[in-house]
Amino acid sequence: MPTLFTDPRSGGVKKSSGVNVLPIVAEVWTQVRDDSNSDVDWLIASFDGSSKTDITVISSGSGGLEKCASSLPENVACYGGIKLKTGRFVTFCYAPEGCSVMVRGRGVLNVLEGSDREIVMKPGLTEENLI
């Protein structure tokens, strides 16, 4: 599923970002959003291996924001979503200092429908210090 962005210079015409979010990402997000599923409440997605266009799930699990934050990969830009203890859903982007500048701006997970807002993820983030 390609991600799309709207270029303000184009009068609102949507163009492909060149990123292909694999179907597994939306499938795992559905599991995160399923209240009857306690096995998965977060997911982390990033580029599939050496691909520069395909985004797939690289990790998922339970344990909320804290577990997700502690599972972030080093030097890899990633994106994902979390079900908070409050029952709300947030999406996030994470771009550590060591990752490529080109990779930082490429992925946008607009396939994660139903989130309340997007947060900037960082290691050690907790729901208590989430602003």
Rank of each mutant, 00 (worst) to 15 (best):
G49S: 07
N20Q: 13
A69H: 06
K83Q: 03
R9T: 15
C68E: 14
L84A: 01
W42N: 01
A69M: 10
L4T: 11
S59L: 07
P73C: 08
E118V: 15
E74Y: 14
M102L: 13
L43E: 01
Y79V: 10
G98N: 07
S50T: 10
S50Y: 01
A45H: 00
L109H: 05
G124K: 12
A77S: 13
V101D: 08
G80W: 02
N75C: 13
V90S: 06
T91L: 08
F5N: 07
A95H: 10
L109S: 04
T91E: 05
L125A: 04
R104G: 03
L109I: 10
D7I: 02
G63D: 07
V76P: 00
K85Q: 06
G18L: 06
I24W: 02
F5W: 11
E113V: 12
V13H: 01
S70H: 02
K122W: 05
V76L: 08
R88P: 00
E97H: 15
V120Q: 11
V101N: 09
I58D: 03
V21Q: 04
C99L: 02
I131Q: 12
R104D: 05
M1G: 10
I131Y: 07
W42Q: 02
T3R: 06
S71I: 07
S62V: 14
D35A: 15
S115Q: 05
R9E: 12
Y94R: 08
F89K: 12
P2F: 12
A26M: 11
S16V: 10
V25T: 06
R88L: 11
G12K: 00
D116V: 06
K14G: 08
S71H: 03
E127N: 02
F5M: 11
P8W: 07
K52C: 03
E113S: 10
E97P: 09
E66H: 09
T6S: 09
A26Y: 07
G61T: 09
C68S: 10
K83A: 02
T56L: 06
N75Q: 15
D41G: 05
T6V: 13
K52I: 08
G18D: 08
V90Q: 12
K52E: 12
P2T: 13
D116Q: 10
G114I: 00
L4K: 09
G81Y: 06
S115P: 00
C93Q: 05
L130G: 02
L125M: 11
S70G: 07
V13P: 00
P123D: 08
N20W: 14
R88Q: 14
V21Y: 01
Y94K: 04
A95C: 15
N20S: 11
S50V: 04
C99D: 01
L112E: 00
I55V: 15
V13F: 01
G114H: 03
I24V: 13
D116Y: 13
G64N: 03
P73E: 04
D116L: 10
T53R: 14
G114R: 07
T6I: 14
S38E: 09
I55S: 09
M121Y: 05
E118Y: 11
P2I: 15
V57R: 01
D116N: 08
L72C: 03
V120H: 11
K67Y: 05
F89W: 12
T91F: 02
E127M: 03
A77L: 02
V111C: 13
E74F: 13
S59C: 09
K15T: 15
V25F: 03
Q31A: 15
V101P: 01
S50Q: 06
K14Q: 15
V120L: 11
G98H: 09
V19K: 05
